[in-house]
């Protein structure tokens, strides 16, 4: 029983090594654990795109950077794929300059896959990436009045809006042109910009897992209509599209990582309890 008491002093190197193995092995050889789909959070986002007509315009916001790519990247790609499959037009903005190019790269990758599959996804016609524009929430307010002027009439790549057919339908960002939007957010500036300045719009959110508890009250209050919650949200969306991708693959790794943390907490407490009994 002596070894049990040593459970609260495991060498941290073992903690790290086993964590690394728990994360790497399921990625290399997926276990295939079943994933359930959340009716409160993920389904409303999916149903939203399903309810739109081909040609409708939606706006997406990339408010994350490389640190959150693991969770929000698959969300963004799955949502974008869904829009293109349904013929819904997408205009992207970015509140984070550090994530502007990352968001574009992710969408470009998905667009290439879609085109290979024969799904129309032409830049300028089906989607436009306006990108990051400095000016904070004041500029986002200005976008509602005159989107072209607020964006200096150019997208992230420097193309003039007048050369992009989709932008001819999107001079102003008002409820008549696009009343629905989604923000993929990893912090601030983020969802607050839209709940404050776009309160009448239908707001959907893709959040990193740590932000989900903070977003639940806005979901319950109806300020946001749907929520993709971290990696599980992305995996659920991929399954709804019947196109299992990166997120589904990573879910097993997340399961194993969580299991190792829980096991560590239990082992630590056994050691602590036995040690405390001896000390008493």
């Amino acid at each position: 029983m002596e070894w049990l008491k040593r459970l609260d002093s495991i060498d941290p190197r073992w903690v790290y090594v086993i964590m690394a193995l728990s994360l790497v092995f399921p990625v290399l050889k997926p276990i295939g654990l079943a994933i359930s789909i959340n009716k409160e959070t993920t389904i409303p986002v999916y149903n939203w795109i399903e309810s739109l007509q081909p040609g409708d315009i939606v706006v997406g916001d990339v408010s994350f950077s490389g640190g959150s790519e693991g969770e929000l990247g698959p969300q963004l790609q799955a949502w974008f794929r869904h829009c293109m499959q349904r013929g819904v037009k997408v205009i992207m903005v970015a509140q984070w300059n550090t994530g502007e190019r990352l968001g574009y790269t992710l969408l470009e990758e998905t667009a290439e896959q879609l085109q290979e599959e024969g799904i129309p996804c032409e830049y300028g016609v089906d989607w436009v990436y306006a990108g990051y524009k400095p000016g904070g929430t004041t500029l986002w307010r200005q976008m509602q009045l005159d989107f072209w002027e607020a964006c200096a009439e150019t997208d992230m790549l420097g193309n003039s809006f007048s050369d992009l057919p989709l932008m001819q339908r999107f001079k102003k960002w008002d409820k008549a042109t696009a009343s629905d939007l989604i923000i993929f957010s990893a912090g601030d500036p983020g969802v607050g910009t839209y709940t404050t300045y776009f309160p009448d719009y239908n707001i959907y959110v893709g959040n990193v897992a740590v932000q989900v508890p903070g977003a639940m009250n806005t979901l319950r209050a109806g300020q946001i209509k749907g929520l993709l919650a971290g990696l599980p949200g992305a995996a659920e969306y991929e399954l709804l599209l019947d196109k299992a991708g990166k997120a589904v693959k990573l879910m097993d790794a997340q399961s194993m990582g969580h299991a190792w943390i829980m096991l560590l907490v239990i082992l630590g407490n056994i050691g602590f309890y036995l040690g405390a009994k001896e000390r008493d």
Partner: peptide, 16 residues
């Protein structure tokens, strides 16, 4: 523990 298990597929496998 409940929140962690509820977030991952392992939790779903144990208690669906």
């Amino acid at each position: 523990f409940i929140v962690m298990l509820g977030n991952v597929s392992l939790g779903n496998a144990i208690w669906g």
